[in-house]
Amino acid sequence: MLDAPQPTIPLPRGPVPHAPPQPGRRSIELKIDGKSVSVAEGSTILDAAKKLGIDTPTLCFLESLTPVNVCRVCVVELEGSRTLVPACSRKVEPNMSIKTDSERVRLSRRLVLEFLASSVDLSTAPEMQEYIERYAANPERFGPAAATVAQPVKIDNDLYVRDYSKCVLCYKCVEACGVDAQNTFAIAVAGRGFSAHIATEFDAPLPDSACVYCGNCIGVCPTGALMFKSEYDMRRAGTWDERRQTQTDTICPYCGVGCDLTVHQQDGQIVRVTSPLDHSVTHGNLCIKGRFGWQFVQIQPAGKQEE
């Protein structure tokens, strides 16, 4: 299975090639929490806030995906706007004046967190727990009978597990499966309202669906609703311990694309594989072989050694 070798090289040295220059973007000045900041045109309020060192909570936002601005946890107060605006997707405009920690902002963020925490199992979403503390959210206030999205966990293949009791409907998995990366469209949001959920066609099990098990949905899931089977099994066995894990980057052993793998190991065993969002080749995405095809280096299958 050898590819044909390259014909005649080395070649004489030529000019260093460059990408064509991008059109220049003008700089936009705005005020956030009373402080002035300049960012390039096309930037978002979130970018500008980040530049000022303001930590804006986000949930459905990810650098590598198109902002859907559905979680509304990043909302900020924009002077002159009737409603709050989502920082993650609202583009900056000259002379905007923005408050990121006003009473209104805090109330909406707190309610959003209470809405989520009262309806979704956030036990494997540590970041959400931090936000809940930060905004003193109290999900208990809706009482014990509050409707939730609790449902049985879906285990229909050996590679990953779907626990939609933990799904906040951030759309990230749908985007990663769709136009933003994989373009397989094995899953979509189905149903409507509080019954809206992530589904294959007719909620068929994954093996009957178009899923190609790239696991790019797991890579972007912020709550652990989508989880490696290896991680799921270890968590159930009580052996999952991130303090004992290290992460090392290497290159995928399969095709010639050169995908960067971040290998998470615990006790000398690979327990999960991810890829950096900012890598020019992968943008965080892998295929089935890259994400799951490492079993051959395991002495025992991950998650099984304690059984």
């Binding site: 946890v73 909406s108 409907l169 309202g193 509080f194 019954s195 809206a196």
Partner: peptide, 11 residues
Amino acid sequence: TCGQCVPCRVG
């Protein structure tokens, strides 16, 4: 409610 954004879907 279409169910897209949290404040409306759960609210």
